[in-house]
Design a protein around this nucleic acid. Sequence first.
DNA 1: GTGATTGCAAAAAGTTTGCAAACTC
DNA 2: GAGTTTGCAAACTTTTTGCAATCAC
Lengths: 150, 150
Amino acid sequence: MPNLPKKFNDCLREKGLRLTTQRAVIARLALSRASHFTADDLLLWAREKDKGISRATVYRTLSLLTDLELLEGLDFGDGRLCYEPAEGRNHHDHLVCRQCGSITEFHCEAIEELQCEVADKLDFKVEHHSLKIYGICKDCSRRTEDDERR
Amino acid sequence: MPNLPKKFNDCLREKGLRLTTQRAVIARLALSRASHFTADDLLLWAREKDKGISRATVYRTLSLLTDLELLEGLDFGDGRLCYEPAEGRNHHDHLVCRQCGSITEFHCEAIEELQCEVADKLDFKVEHHSLKIYGICKDCSRRTEDDERR
DNA sequence: GTGATTGCAAAAAGTTTGCAAACTC
DNA sequence: GAGTTTGCAAACTTTTTGCAATCAC
């Protein structure tokens, strides 16, 4: 089990907040994920470690971690928020498959640069951005071709 | 008051659907907007024309218009969907001001092309995409500078 | 007249909040 | 001990749905 990032501890102390066992469990799980997850996922994982953890505490901790910029919120438009660790990862965008719901990350430096250029031209100060490409993923289109061949 | 697009009428007939007064009121209002709006905005406008229109009918008509691709749904991540007319407009992306909430449209052909290239490389069939740049708009940063000058 | 559509109210689904009890520092 | 945090349940927000009454064709 990875340690809690020093920053989490520091931020808590700095703001006079307390490191409770629930916060530790939830933060450790959330910050060690390799990819995005929902509040509900996190609640289930947390309850494996500690039966009593409540949904409210998960939501409160998620919002704390997002405020500290240790997590990033992602909205894939399915009516609930996803989260992923923000530290130690490069920015990336997402391909969302409309058929199987899978989400693939990608990164394109040229797109990032163009975005900044465009925003600059409009005197808009960029803080962050979100690019999602919706369509059909490799596996699903292969599956569809197979079906049609029959 | 603009006429209903012929396509709306045709699609209704084709699918055996009926042109009710409520649908006409709602569709006319929705399709004549220059920019994005919420279901609740539309309900208020519709009720100015016809007191009795229900929220459910607004939602049902929005979903009908979206299916017919006369409206496009936009998710700015504030927990509710926005819509804007999809016909007769070019695709565009959005700058979202974190301070005043204003939304500015822009279009960059080079970014569009790069998106297709990236997706192609990953064997992903693009259907549509959504690019949102979050930050501070021209007016808000000017306002902040003025405040600091005092 | 027949079957689509409406309005209403209730249901969903995800998230937030008030409060008393429990816990951290 | 003081003050934060928790769990619970209820509240909230946006959107969807079941159903009987109504309306378009």
